[in-house]
Design a protein around this nucleic acid. Structure first.
Lengths: 166, 166
DNA sequence: CTTGGAAAGTCAACAAGGCTGACATAAAGT
DNA sequence: ACTTTATGTCAGCCTTGTTGACTTTCCAAG
């Protein structure tokens, strides 16, 4: 940590293969940490990451359509549907027929869904908060900048669309 | 991007739920980008991410034992073995019986394995290089600091052990 | 030298969560 | 009236994770 900090200050950035490989491994290990807490919670609810992702984005933008969620998640409708069906059956998600366009289904979290969402995001936010606090404000800005630059253009578009909504 | 930059400068860091949620989503979308290039390459070789991870760490530390690899990857030996077997059968990985302890199997990439490794890591490094260049040196340092702080202690240990080896 | 236990591998069965293809239905748009 | 769109569903496949049971090999301690 000490060396990365000094290196980020005023010195030049040497993009050696070694540097880049460390970044790659940092992503690998950090993503494991990132998903660890929700995974534990989901497990004794009988759900998986796919359910988490659906819940997250339905909470993020209540009333979004199935097609929108599909494109955000980047999976097939068959795959999403399997997850969505169980969430609806279990009473965590509600699917309402569209007012203007009755073909569309608008998705909302129920009260029970909201409870699970807060349980999941609470754990994840807590880890993120600790990481942010440990690393400091400058690090946080850099973190987001690099991640954003790492996205595919299409994903970046999705990310930025969601970015300033709430 | 402009707002995250100014925010990271001298202003205080407000760890609002909204801020944290943006970090969470950034991880989600960035990880997709992070794995996209290797996934494409692996596909027309008939392999998956599990193969990539094995190849990466075998290349990283040639001669490591199966047990070591197991603990780095965090999967069961049955799961790893399935992947490892195909890689050995296909002549990308060589498994040598340990000299001192003949129970141990030491893993090495063959020439063909090295070729695929360079193809995979080349693509991934290129994306990382571009992201680093776009974000700048300060951002890179922050990126690594936050990721490191986000890891579980056990993973961080693994990461740091590998960190200064090469 | 025998035996306990560690390291490695294997077989079987299962689940989650991706995928494709085919097909059905309702509603909107032309 | 016809086409397109949004959604859902059935069937089947693959990868990659899991558990449990079992074997073989071999080091090391008694």
């Amino acid at each position: 940590m000490a060396d990365t900090a000094s290196q980020g200050g005023e010195t030049l950035l040497f993009l050696t293969d070694e540097q880049l490989r460390k970044g790659i491994e940092a992503m690998f290990f950090a993503y494991r940490g990132f998903t660890a807490d929700p995974d534990r919670i989901l497990e004794h609810h009988g759900y998986g990451r796919a359910h988490h992702r659906a819940i997250h984005f339905i909470n993020r933008e209540p009333g979004l359509t199935v097609t929108t969620l599909l494109s955000v998640l980047g999976v097939t409708k068959q795959s999403l549907n399997r997850v969505l069906r169980t969430l609806i059956e279990d009473g965590l998600v509600e699917s309402r027929v569209g007012k203007r366009d009755k073909r569309e289904r608008h998705l909302y979290l129920t009260d029970a869904g909201g409870v699970l969402e807060r349980e999941l995001s609470g754990a994840q936010r807590e880890r993120m908060r600790l990481a942010y606090r440990t690393a400091g404000p400058q690090a946080v800005a850099g973190f987001r900048q690099v991640l954003e630059a790492m996205m595919d253009p299409e994903m970046r578009r999705q990310y930025q669309m969601l970015k300033d909504t709430a």
